[in-house]
Each structure stands twice: as structure tokens, then as C-alpha cells.
Design a protein around this nucleic acid. Sequence first.
DNA 1: ACGGTCGATATGATATTCCTATCGTGAGAT
DNA 2: ATCTCACGATAGGAATATCATATCGACCGT
Lengths: 294, 294
Amino acid sequence: MLSKLEMFIAVAKEGHFGRAAQSLGITQPSLSTGIKQLEDQLGVQLIFRGSRFGGLTPEGQRALTWARKITADSRQLRDEMRATKHGLSGQLRLAAIPTALTWAATLSTAFTQAHPNVQMTILSRPSMQILTMLDDLEADAGLTYLDNEPLGRVSTVPLYEERYMVVAAPGNALSGRARLHWSDLAEQPLCLLSPDMQNRRIIDRNLNAVGVLPRVGVESNSTVVLIAHVESGGWITVLPEGIARFLTEGKPLELIPLEGGEVGHRVGLIAPHRDPNTPVLAALLAEAGRMSAL
Amino acid sequence: MLSKLEMFIAVAKEGHFGRAAQSLGITQPSLSTGIKQLEDQLGVQLIFRGSRFGGLTPEGQRALTWARKITADSRQLRDEMRATKHGLSGQLRLAAIPTALTWAATLSTAFTQAHPNVQMTILSRPSMQILTMLDDLEADAGLTYLDNEPLGRVSTVPLYEERYMVVAAPGNALSGRARLHWSDLAEQPLCLLSPDMQNRRIIDRNLNAVGVLPRVGVESNSTVVLIAHVESGGWITVLPEGIARFLTEGKPLELIPLEGGEVGHRVGLIAPHRDPNTPVLAALLAEAGRMSAL
DNA sequence: ACGGTCGATATGATATTCCTATCGTGAGAT
DNA sequence: ATCTCACGATAGGAATATCATATCGACCGT
């Protein structure tokens, strides 16, 4: 595939099958066959031709962009493998679901106070991506749901259990109440986290369980966006208590506990289940254990 | 080469030659040979092994990152070539830098009020990623800096100019002042957006221009995390005015204008510079034009 | 009409990839 | 210490893919 992409790039550059072949050190029929196979493989015509080269098709233009990107990446892989090795660094990368960012901040604050020479990076990510990042060594630890969807082989430290609240502006149909049920959300204009978020899937499940079809007009990977919409009027959202309280503090918005449905989902720290943990990671796990609400 | 990269990815994922081979539908000796050939080709050892898989070498880690990128690019090339042309859909995906999320929410609110049948998805992303997402057809429009780093070929609608504020808790060394300069941030414990954010690069540049080495103890891709750290005491952060005001509203935190350095960076809507825009996108561009502060 | 250029097709040779069978090593159980 | 099992590597033959050479078909210019 890679060599066929190189052929395609050469033809696009030379505008002539024979010269392209020559530039690659192969014969023209080999190149002709290769381009044809690439077209078959991708299922589109890449080049306009009668008896001679007639330019790239629109699909060919797009494919050329990709071909260049892919071959450049391959070249860089090769080049970099010749480079020198990387040493360890004093960094800790924590990937957290957006609804647990306040907890991430709390944990980070305590941890960096105890270990001032460690630099924290905190990344907001959907839960599935957090697991991938741990596997890929792109994150050192995660903050996510422990009991809703499978985690695979990780070490865990439970931190808290989630409770949900409706966030509404005063004057909304649901505001002023002491508590709400999931069925009360029927027909309400909702702004929610996007479906790649586990929190959203929990909410969808709870609504589905009471026969409510969620009327979602806005979705986002950012809780800031949700609160901003609620504040603009005409929207309500559902968020776990911690982040809801944090984002609405001092704002003219109402938090109403949402009862029923699935409750008490555990959120906690996860880390790769590996040999001995690094001292930095061991310290983070210990810190999380100390601040657990469970 | 591409199939060998797939083999390598599978081994890295499974941590076991036999299972990796099975997942690819080939035999273990084939996979063993393939990995060895990849190592020969790249000139480095990628995997530690005795009689069994012993983890990835540091070079292997880096190669894995590239392998994933290359194979994902290839997949996307294939997927895109298969895609039928995109007709109109009732969706609009807007990717916005975290510091512009309140503007995204404002634009979205106005837009969905005018077009109630369009579903908005708003994604918080670094600016470079926004450009990539536009190219990859993963987002329909972006909200990002217009004048700081090259955008490539996009249509733009300027929305506002950024001004920066320091966010500090009362009692902090910098609190109580009417205004601050970038040099005042020397030696201050900072929590900032991570370096993949353009806002961070602007801040770093401003600090560098006055000879200040930023003392960053915490970084994140989420502004919520930054404010939470400031509120916990001991940290200060720098944010553009809009998001700073939104997140601190009602909280016992101070906003102090930051003067000097680069000012007035333009932020606005960007869309692919393509044929005729879709009616949905045209409507969004028009809505942005109407709410522009410039 | 003829000659030259271009890209495609056919065929046989060569290279690569894959599978099966087997080997060598290390870890764990007895 | 010995045996067994699991794991990854090696060897050899078969299957498949790729390549070069020779040639064909189409188009253009003279």
C-alpha cells in the first residue's frame, strides 16, 4: 500500500507515468499496474486518463493529500528511530472525565503541594479514551467511572459516588422544586454531554428506563458549554453534583437533586496494572486513597 | 510496511505474540517474522523479549505512536474514499478552543433559536486540532485564533479580540491591584492551559518577552481545572476575559486586567474554504457575522 | 497515412509472505 | 533437580504478489 501511494505521489508530481516510473526506478507497466491496484483498493478513480495523463480526479486530490501525509509519517518514523533515546521525565499526566475535573483539581492540588517538583498535566477526556491513553502510555493515570463499564486490567482507588442534579435557570418549568425525577425531564430542552461520554450514556439509560425520549438540542464535550447554555435561558442540563456545584456557584441558577434511576456510580483513580509502579504514580495512588470519600 | 506496523500495534496492544497473531488472523510465526523484519527495517529493537513478551523498548514506544498515526491515516484515506459525498445533514459540529467556549455557547444559543431543527455539537479542542478536524471532515466549523498562527485556507468571520486577566484568590500576593503587567508574574505559582493550546503559547511568549521564566506547576486542557486550582488557593492563572468572567462569576476570586505584551488577538469562526458552503454552514457564518464585536 | 508517444495488458521470472512443523528458552509446579 | 507447559524463533515449502520484458491500443502531430 505504501509503495503504491509513493507511485501515486510520483505520478501526481510528474504528470507522466513514464517519468514517474523512472523517478522511482521502476518500469512504466509496473507503475501503471500499481496505480490501477490502488484505485481498485480504494474503490475510486484517482486519475483522469485517455491515452495519456489527464490530471487528478477530485477523489485523487483528496487521496494525494492523504498519501503525502502517510508517506511523510512513515519517513519520520524511520528518521526518528535513528534518533537517540529518551530519558525519563518528572511528569504526571492525568486524564479525567469532564464531570470529575473538580476532583482532579483537588487531587492535583494536594499532590503538587506534597511533591512540588512534579509537573501535572490534567486532560479532559471521554472515559473510553482514558483507558486507551493508559494502555498507550499517553497518560499515567485516569479519573473515571469504576463500576459502569468494563475497565480492563487497572489498579483502582475509589474516590466518590455520583449523584445527579438538574441545572435550570429561574423561571424554567422545573425550577423551584425541592427534587425531581427522571420522568420530569420529558419534553424539556436539554443540553448534555456528547454520547462518547459515559455520563451521557448513564443519563440516556435513566431516561430510557422511564420511557423518556431525550430532547437534546445541544451536546458538547465541555461542561462549561452546558452551563453557559442553561444560563442563557431555555435549556436545562443534568450533571453530577460536584461539577454542577462548582460551575454554578454564585450564578443565578438552580440545582435540583434528581432522584431515582441508577445512583451512586463510583468514580475513582485508575492506573496501569504494571510491575512496580513508579514512585510518582505510587504517591498519586496514596494521595487519592487519603482523600477518598468512600 | 503497513501490515508490519499493524502487527506491531497488535503486539503492543495484546502484550502476547500468539494473541496478537490471532487478532490479525495470521499465525504466530508469521507475526514473529514480521516484527523482526520491522525491527531490521527500522534498525532498532522495538520489543523486550526473553522467552516471552517483555514490554516495549523506549524506541518501541515512539514507534507505536507513529504506527498508530500512520495506520489511522491509511484507514481514514480508505474511509474517505468510500464515503459518498456528504449531503446536508441536520447536524453542525463546532470545534472551539477552550478559552472561546462561552462565545461558542452564545453563538450556538442564537443559532439554535433561529434554526431549531439543527443539532449542535460543540467540542473543546486545541487550535491545531481544530484545523485538523476541519481538514478531516470531523468538524464543520471552528472557533479559534485568526491572527496568531497560520490557519491555512479557511473562510473566517472575526468575532472578538482577546484581553487577558489574571485570576487570583484574595490574599494572593497579586490580589487587590487594579492592573498587572506580565513581569509581575515572575516567580508566581502558575496553572495554565497546556502547551498544545495556542493561548498558552501566547502567554509563554508574553512572559518570555519580559524575561520571565513561567513557573508552571499545573497545566490542563480544561479551564475548569485552572479555576478550581486558583480557588483552592496558592495558584494563579491567566485567561482571556470572557471565559475568566464566566467561570469566576459569584466566586470569591479576583480578576485583574493584564496589560502589555501582545494584545487584541482576534478570535473568530473558521470554516473550510470549499466550493459553495452548505446552507447550514452559510447560516452559521451569517449568524457569527451578526454577533461580531468587531 | 505514418510515426511517435503514452498508458494498458499479457506473460514469465523473481521476491515476498504465509503456514506447518519444530526448536530453544524460561517459568512454575512437583 | 526434574518435568511440563507456554511462549517466541527458526526452517522449509507452498502460495501469492510484484516486477520486467514484450507488445498492444489509442491519440496526436506532421
